[in-house]
Design a protein around this nucleic acid. Structure first.
Length: 136
DNA sequence: CGTTTGACTACGC
DNA sequence: CGCGTAGCCAAAC
């Protein structure tokens, strides 16, 4: 099997893990960079942002990835130069912004991946609840 | 190689 | 609220 990590424009293994999880966020819901990272051992919030930024150069992935559903922990958008587009996409999914431009996590926050994903990624329910306790 | 740079975040003031 | 800082770590220099 070819090592895709050696070729630019192909996702490294940690990037694939990020894409896999982000692709599970349903329409009309959002997750923070930190939320995604908290479910992926060895992955930090910065790396989630880095992976999503890198996905832009791969049209195949970027096209089917709901990248717009990942926002920062304050409920704000943080894509340099891409906030307008992201905001439009999220609004078209029914997500509302406060007058100051904040998305209410209590209303739109993703509740996390399903049991199948948790099982496959060896995260038991107890750990999952502990992780979620730290979510915004 | 060492340094800097981020689609980050928690915490202190 | 804003602002600085420390921790984070893959990429890019």
């Amino acid at each position: 099997m070819a090592d895709l990590t050696l070729t630019p424009n192909h996702p490294t293994s940690y990037q694939k893990r990020v894409y896999d999880l982000v692709s599970m966020i349903p329409k009309g819901q959002v997750a923070s960079y930190g939320m995604i990272a908290s479910l992926l051992p060895g992955v930090t919030a910065r790396m989630v942002g880095y992976a999503l930024a890198a996905s832009v150069t791969n049209s195949d992935i970027h096209q089917k990835l709901p990248w717009q559903r990942v926002i920062n922990s304050k409920g704000r958008l943080s894509i340099p130069g891409g906030v307008e587009r992201q905001r439009a996409l999220l609004m078209s999914e029914g997500i509302e912004f406060s007058a100051s431009g904040v998305i209410n996590f209590r209303q739109y926050r993703w509740d996390g991946p399903d049991a199948v994903w948790l099982e496959k990624n060896t995260i038991d329910l107890m750990d999952f609840m502990t992780i979620k306790a730290g979510w915004p």
